[in-house]
Nucleic acid binder design. Sequence first.
DNA 1: GTGAGTTACGAAAGCGATTTCGTAATGAGC
DNA 2: GCTCATTACGAAATCGCTTTCGTAACTCAC
Lengths: 342, 342
Amino acid sequence: MNIKTIAAMAGVSIATVSKIINNYSDVGEETRQRVLKIMEETGYKPSSSAKTLATKKSSLIGVVFAGKLNSDLDHPIFVKVLNSFKKQIGLLGYDLLFFSNETFFQTKEDYLARCRHFQVDGCIVIAGDNVEPSIDDLARSDIPCIGIDIALGGSNTTYLMSDNAKIAAKVVEHLYMCGYRELGLLGIDRNSGVTLIRENSFRDALRSFGLPLKPEWFVHSPGYEKECGYRAMKEWIAAGSLPRALFAVTDLLAMGAMEAAKEHGLRVPQDLAIVGCDDIDAAPFTDPPLTTVRQDTEKIGRLAALMLFDMINNQIDPSAIVVESELIVRGSCGGARSDRMA
Amino acid sequence: MNIKTIAAMAGVSIATVSKIINNYSDVGEETRQRVLKIMEETGYKPSSSAKTLATKKSSLIGVVFAGKLNSDLDHPIFVKVLNSFKKQIGLLGYDLLFFSNETFFQTKEDYLARCRHFQVDGCIVIAGDNVEPSIDDLARSDIPCIGIDIALGGSNTTYLMSDNAKIAAKVVEHLYMCGYRELGLLGIDRNSGVTLIRENSFRDALRSFGLPLKPEWFVHSPGYEKECGYRAMKEWIAAGSLPRALFAVTDLLAMGAMEAAKEHGLRVPQDLAIVGCDDIDAAPFTDPPLTTVRQDTEKIGRLAALMLFDMINNQIDPSAIVVESELIVRGSCGGARSDRMA
DNA sequence: GTGAGTTACGAAAGCGATTTCGTAATGAGC
DNA sequence: GCTCATTACGAAATCGCTTTCGTAACTCAC
């Protein structure tokens, strides 16, 4: 079932059928209706590869997970952003291509080659930590890209992220209001991107509130996972000199830390207040429920889709967008009400 | 940068280059090396659309979320299965295509048309409840399909799911051993597929243990989400006549039920023991931690990829596979130890 | 030296669309 | 009745690759 079949059935040339598919004006109304009817009846859809070959447009958006995420799809935040992105970009006429084929491209990092191979119309780059330099090749290419949690540079690129620079300020302010004065941070070793922004803004916030920055209250774990937080907290406890409240740069770290603290008989929040960041699904279920900062993943994904669409179709080069996040106060910081049904 | 460029640079015909790309034997070793070197240096990769057009193979696997899932990608279990599937199928040389474009295909349900349009080599069908009949068109087609949590019928299809029929038996046995004799079920209204299997096997298990099946101990909610479980439990409590222990067919239902029970002053597990199913990420964090049945999502995804590969490349028509699940005893059933670090 | 078999390569016909450009038919204006 | 636009359509080139088949050149046995 191809365009030739339809043309034959309708008694017209394939050029005419193609024009009807693409809404050209130089087709008679009667002919148009006749052909449309046949296409409808036969369920004919033009081949996407033939179309892509001829037009160099694929209606495909590439999904690039950059960095050392050891778990693409099951990252608690990114998958939500991606889900929202997928819904919106679908409405705009695009489908999603997940690159995963590591045999054809010997190296996972050759993002640009992958994009060219499939002729994606644009792509979304979702970043973890320690992003590879090869991402720059992609960003500097002519392919429109939108970064999530990564500040892409390049003329056809832009990016979106939560207001990470403000997140820590909200946290510090709340902890201050709760009466805490000894605040510490659980960060990520050699962290890059968003967690670094969070960490830096935490220092700034401490300064602006006139709170002490004791080096021993700044601890770093090698990764963002729960186990890392658990181990880091264990060592921290062993080293002594704990703050009264701590801000973990991800919820998973916070959860691991909470577990370790409780194992050592520390009560949360009475002995140690803990605040996370992200508001992942499990956050309301810790004991006590985790106070955290909620990223507006729905909005990030939706805006990313709209912006990428604009970049592809209107050659618009939008500036980076920062999406506001929200402090969610639960029990782990000892501040207030515990959490109920959302 | 296309095959013609490479051919010109190497001083050979495009046919020869193509043969080298596709490992034909009738190419001289010297020529082969020369051309390979040029391809390497220029970073040339053949266009996937041209290749697909010529071969009718795309190296793409379509991802179909069937049924009334209101949240494709953020379904706690399916996303894990998919992640594992993606890793394995990537090693086998395939990339993943997520259909999301609702504008081109007026109706979301026209799965077969989507697959044909992109000429996917196979597809994975992930099912929620109330699967649309149009899935059958796809299953009966010549496109190899593998179902997750859905018993696909058709010659080029097979499916994988957890041993749902045994899950309930494990649960009932454990609850029985813990001393409970009054067991109830929190299921899903007009549920289809796996939750129905779980429910039926629960009844069977009750019978085989000689336990009573009281109709008022079988309650159904409209969906699988937490809110549904919450509301269903509220009504159940209002109606009176609660069992001593209940099996919820999904963890989210169990979590909602637990929340409602606690709000009414019921202690879990002292007044009401609760067991869920799936072992989602949040399950260890409920208070008390949720006893549940863990689906081996990694194995399901991996085997699905291997089976689909076999179906595509070796015309093998494997039989359905059932993957064993594991009872994870935590605090919510009152049976034993609480949960520690995984 | 000759015929048969092997090796290495290229010409050319697809695959299923798009798009340019040419042209026959029609209608309008005078 | 003649010219000139306008409308409606089709022929054919093109996109980048695969694959069949034909054929030189070379090897080998005799």
